[in-house]
């Protein structure tokens, strides 16, 4: 029960995080929300997880949940990467402005 509660909190955090980043990266955000929701469902109905796990050839439902978690982590990593790129764009615009301002001063 304790594990289920902790996982629920963590997965809810993912859902929250993903829906907040939905505006910057719609694809990633949507995917993260969907996977985290599935995670929540399986945490509370593990027997379904076990059935689905057996269906796709994984031994136990717990393992399936674990794999889903790994996938979510990777998606968050990708999202972070995309955010860094967006930041780089801001830095670029800033640096360009400085460069152009300095160039016109020297004239």
């Amino acid at each position: 029960m304790i594990a289920q509660l902790i996982l629920t909190v963590m997965l809810l955090a993912v859902v929250l995080y993903a829906s907040m980043s939905y505006r910057q990266a719609p694809v990633i955000g949507l995917f993260a929300v969907i996977s985290a929701s599935w995670g929540l469902y399986f945490v509370w109905v593990p027997s379904h997880a076990t059935k689905l796990a057996a269906l796709v050839g994984i031994g136990r439902g717990v393992d399936l949940v674990l794999y889903v978690w790994v996938v979510i982590s990777l998606i968050m990593l990708l999202n972070l990467h995309l955010k860094l790129r967006a930041q780089m764009e801001l830095i670029t615009r800033l640096a360009r402005k400085i460069a152009l301002a300095e160039a016109s001063q020297e004239k």
């Binding site: 830095i91 670029t92 640096a95 360009r96 460069a99 152009l100 300095e102 160039a103």
Partner: peptide
């Protein structure tokens, strides 16, 4: 040449 300098490599 006219010169524009990026303060950092972009």
């Amino acid at each position: 040449a006219a010169l524009v300098r990026h303060p950092i490599n972009l």
